[in-house]
């Protein structure tokens, strides 16, 4: 079998581990402001890790696509250091504040422009909105068999076999390629990349192509289906931690009384 071609869709988000104090809301402009460094969405890093493992196992060419109004090539070059062969940034003013549907439409346009793929991998959800939809919509738009929530991916005779997470464990699901698979964190974290390797990749002379609306032939902003009508800080749950005092036994006794009052 010839070398398979994998496209990984990786989005850039503010670090989801940023503390609450770094996140504020501009209710007027309907914008969430996060004072934290940009990172590759963790589930998309899992997807890249899955792709690199396939490359190591059976040989593959990996193309990473990243879409946004402005995509940091410094952040995304990490994908090349980790084992991707090609990185294409999809950057356009029109890619600002897209919903799942229009994001998928823009990615579908870019993927058709790339062409010749066997497997598309996305994270199971983006770590900012956690909707878990772009990949699935993308699969549907491209008319591909689609497997969600991969814990492990293997390639067998032109098919992709996925251990898909289900509530009580996993099922092994098979689909003929080309196919789309969304990847869950159980796959494992993206491999460690040494600082020297990262710096070499970031400072390297390699130019990273950047495509705009004109290159992919899709105007996603016209396809928006969801509107944000209000943004707010989290509701005050009225939690004001009441600490139990005393010996461990006394603390336990007071807590047990609380448990019982909940019945």
């Amino acid at each position: 079998m010839t070398e398979i071609r994998i496209i990984v869709c990786a989005t850039q988000i503010p670090d989801p581990e940023a503390p609450l104090s770094d996140v504020s809301v501009d209710a007027q402009k309907l914008e969430v402001l996060v004072d934290a460094p940009q990172v590759i969405s963790p589930f998309d890093e899992n997807a890249l890790e899955a792709a690199v493992r396939i490359k190591e196992a059976v040989g593959a060419k990996i193309t990473v696509l990243s879409l946004g109004k402005k995509v940091s090539d410094t952040v995304l070059r990490k994908t090349l250091a980790a084992g991707a062969d090609e990185l294409i940034l999809l950057e356009d003013e029109a890619f600002d504040k897209l919903d799942s549907h229009s994001t998928a439409a823009a990615l579908a346009g870019a993927i058709q422009t790339v062409g010749g793929y066997d497997l598309i991998l996305t994270g199971r959800q983006a770590g900012d909105w956690d909707s878990g939809q772009v990949g699935l919509i993308l699969g549907e738009m491209l008319g591909l068999p689609c497997i969600n929530l991969a814990r492990e991916i293997s390639i067998e005779d032109g098919s992709v076999v996925v251990k898909k997470g289900i509530p009580e464990g996993y099922e092994r699901v098979k689909a003929t390629m080309p196919a789309l698979v969304t990847v869950s964190n159980e796959v494992g974290e993206l491999r460690y990349i040494s600082r020297t390797k990262m710096l070499k990749m970031i400072q390297g002379a390699r130019s990273i192509p950047s495509w705009s609306v004109g290159d992919i032939g899709v105007h996603p902003e016209a396809l928006q289906k969801m509107a944000i009508t209000a943004l707010s800080s989290p509701p005050d749950m009225g939690r004001d931690c009441q600490f139990m005092e005393g010996t461990p036994e006394e603390k336990a006794g007071k807590l047990a009384a609380v448990f019982m009052s909940l019945r």
């Binding site: 996140v23 289906k225 969801m226 943004l231």
Partner: peptide
């Protein structure tokens, strides 16, 4: 719905959908 790991909440509506 909660967004940004529960650090903000969004109200959303559906357009021509």
């Amino acid at each position: 719905r909660p967004i940004y790991a529960g650090k903000a909440y969004a109200k959303v509506t559906f357009e021509n959908s």
